[in-house]
Amino acid sequence: MAKKVNEINAGSMADIAFLLLIFFLVATTMNVDTGISRKLPPMPDPNVDPPKVKERNIFVVLVNKNDQLLVRGKPGDINTLREEAKRFLSNPTNDISLPEKNLTQIEGLGEVWISKGVISLQNDRGTSYDMYIQVQNELTAAVRELRDELSINKFGVKFSDLEEEDLIKAIQKAIPVAISEAEPKDVGGN
């Protein structure tokens, strides 16, 4: 006959668990790291001249120390920047003041026109970081919207909803993130 074993009192288990729980509650930071990803260009080789880019292929965005925009030589506005950048990168009407396009064969997409346009973002040392991020955000949004349009056109789903690696690569190739952060220049008047 088995002896009756006294049950271990589990009542304090809850207290111990509570203690740990409170510790983790306090120590938890629920932040997920998010941000605008960019790839910096390598340092330019002083012996090699920078490649010449035709004027029609560059979309210069200047931000001055008062956070004012100059887009392709004209005062610009942050609210219209996205549309302008999109029009520049897609060049739907083959305007000669907008960038050239190359017909290229891409696996999975067939023949597509790849724009030669480059967006060049230049800022002053006195520009506020907030404004700079807003401009970056608008330019990124322009590229993202173009990718979405192409993706919906070809595959029927948004770019962010694409799952197959090959298709993502194909779209990225067709619409590259052509945003260049210019070499810092010393411009007076800070």
């Binding site: 790291d33 998010t34 941000g35 605008i36 990803s37 960019r38 910096l40 260009p41 390598p42 955000n137």
Partner: peptide, 8 residues
């Protein structure tokens, strides 16, 4: 270190 991200 070319890969970077502006935290936002």
């Amino acid at each position: 270190a070319y890969k970077m991200s502006y935290a936002t």
